[in-house]
Design a protein around this nucleic acid. Structure first.
Lengths: 231, 231
DNA sequence: ACCTGAACACCGTTCAAGT
DNA sequence: ACCTGAACACCGTTCAAGT
């Protein structure tokens, strides 16, 4: 007789919004965006569709809650007392790693941000970044500009990195993956895409996190140039 | 008798991939992301579902083609002979305006970028920006960093702007919209979201395009600081 | 108050059949 | 080669009925 697995236990606890969101995150992680379905969710939770709708208004709200849960834990305050620049890098890397671990986050965050009114996750991210911008000594009128550039770069670049990691299937080797990438790039017309082709060659040789942080440093250099710290 | 409208004409031209993509863009523009359906597409084109599948592999390919068509026309070369900085602003504003006119572009671009292998639209955008980065005199090793920061900021910020414009429904006044926004912001706990609340107040008073360009200038300042032009 | 699960409307996609 | 349109499998959501 097999030992009882977590998956096999059938409703020892009552259904709750938390349990539903937790199951949704698990499903998104293992089966991807298309894998989250009310059908399989009801199976996993050993319940009926109506029970889920009692705790959650609809699928959109469930996705928003799952997104917020993961982001909240990613932004949980870490160490402390470093320079504001290091704090910004830490927040950025926290989101980078969260998106890497939960690739569906990239698409979901873009959806959540482009929805009005904002759900809970948008202010959470903006505040996490904005506080470090404030700590940097940036004047109030520029918080939005600096925060926006950082936030959009972090989410966009992290999403792209996650897409690349995901494309590297468990079975395939890194060499195989890079081959398929370079094959795609070689199909670009060298006359139409000179810059993209050169960049594509380089991308394969660099460390992902290092390259990600180079973008952060570029923005920080712009901040230092436009808002030099008082002497 | 009403004059013949473009919509009423029933298949005077043969079906083609171009006509299908054109109809898809129209549908996305008028009915939003959820409005593009094979059911209504077949009605609009006075045909059957199978006919569309003869020209297009599936819905994903159709969305990619619609996205690429709009982006291609948005990046069509404009004036000329300005400074590289002005060229970058022009490219950025071209994408900004395209996303404003076609709000579904924001989500679609994020989907297209996070798909491996890249479709045609990703290199198109990166090249459009990357060429100006090259013109700026940025050394080759930094093209990826600078291009990535610019691209992700442009797409992210433009998407957010489009979401706000869309929220301002045709009937509603700008005052009403701003009221609803500020109401949402006031629900944020001042202790938990001090920065976000201050920024939210400011956002309502500023011009969208101006604020967008401020982000571009921040990145350009970083480029100038890290890669000063040879004397 | 909380849950069940059949039923509904709708979706993307297929495919035998036509021209 | 190109098109038709009924059929299929699947989806999110509802709701009368139970406890």
């Amino acid at each position: 007789m097999p030992p009882p697995t977590r998956r096999a236990q059938r409703r020892t606890e009552a259904l709750s919004r938390e349990r539903i969101v937790e199951a949704a995150v698990e499903l998104l992680d293992t089966a991807g965006e298309g894998g989250l379905t009310f059908r399989v969710l009801t199976e996993r939770l050993a319940t009926g569709a109506g029970a889920i709708y009692w705790h959650v208004a609809n699928k959109g709200e469930l996705l928003a809650a799952a997104t917020d849960a993961v982001v909240a834990s990613a932004l949980a305050p870490g160490g402390s007392r470093e320079s504001p620049q290091d704090e910004i890098r830490a927040v950025a890397l926290g989101l980078f790693d969260a998106i890497d671990a939960h690739p569906w986050l990239a698409t979901q965050l873009s959806v959540q941000l482009s929805r009005t009114p904002w759900g809970p996750v948008a202010p959470r991210i903006f505040e996490g970044i904005g506080r470090q911008v404030r700590a940097l000594g940036v004047p109030e009128e520029s918080w939005f500009t600096v925060g926006s550039v950082l936030m959009h770069y972090v989410l966009g670049a992290a999403g792209q990195n996650a897409a690349n990691s995901r494309a590297l299937e468990p079975g395939a080797s890194r060499a195989e993956f890079l081959d398929s990438v370079s094959k795609a790039w070689e199909e670009l017309d060298p006359d139409d895409y000179p810059v993209t082709r050169i960049v594509a060659e380089q991308v394969r040789e660099h460390d992902d996190r290092e390259q990600f942080l180079a973008g952060i440093d570029l923005v920080l250099a712009g901040v230092a140039a436009l808002h030099p710290p008082a002497p």
